[in-house]
Amino acid sequence: MDFKSSPFMYAVGGIIVIFVLVQSIFFLVRAVRRGKELGISSEKMKNTALQSALFSIAPALSIVATVIVLSGALGVVLPWIRLTVIGAIQYETSSAQSALNAMGNSAGIASAVTDPEQFTTVAWVMTVGSVMPLVILPFVLKKLQKRIGKALGKNKVWADVMSAAAFIGIIIAFVGRAILGTGDNEANIIGDGAGVLSITGLIGSVAFMLLFSYIIKKVPKLQKLESFAMPLSMFLGMGMVLLVNYLLPAAYIIEWRY
């Protein structure tokens, strides 16, 4: 049996998954209790949970896809653990690549790692390379949030527009990449740079969301469906991408930044 996918490896992965689940449930239960004390309706809390769950499905599936990409070289378990905790797609791939290159393995994650020492080196680099936020959080978070809280507490309108500005700043970074971002040149993947498909996804989801907001505003009965509007717009945006991809002749599916 491949040492990278032995029952021992799966057991370690299982322990980490259980830890993450228990921690999430712990904070979830605390928040729901506090929410009840504060008088937040249980419907509102349920809707939040439902919306969040719906939003997570598609990105989670794309994370599974990354596990698949990395599993060719590292087996299933290590990428699974790394992307369940702290991980993010761009970090994990570059950590693994960097560790393998340091050992003179120039193929990197393009070929299967068969030497246990190379494998553990990758595991160490991936883990130690990603823990920085967890090291500093216990020291800085409380102070950081107190300071922010004080600044925000001074003026309600200023606080509202500044927090909207921070959110918008993040959203625009992604929107900008959909309009003008280039893809991975080395990998030469079709569809990862800005082009007809990324703009279709962007405009499609924006249009559906605005349409739903308009309908919900006009028909108060539909208020209950508000929490579905965003995830549904995302899925419909993805549907538009497929439609354009299959209906438009290939010559028109241009990628202006590839």
């Binding site: 992604f174 569809g191 703009i199 962007l202 989801s205 995302m234």
Partner: peptide
Amino acid sequence: PAFQQILPCLFGA
């Protein structure tokens, strides 16, 4: 192709 465009769809919505 739809999975490739998750981020524009997510942040558009």
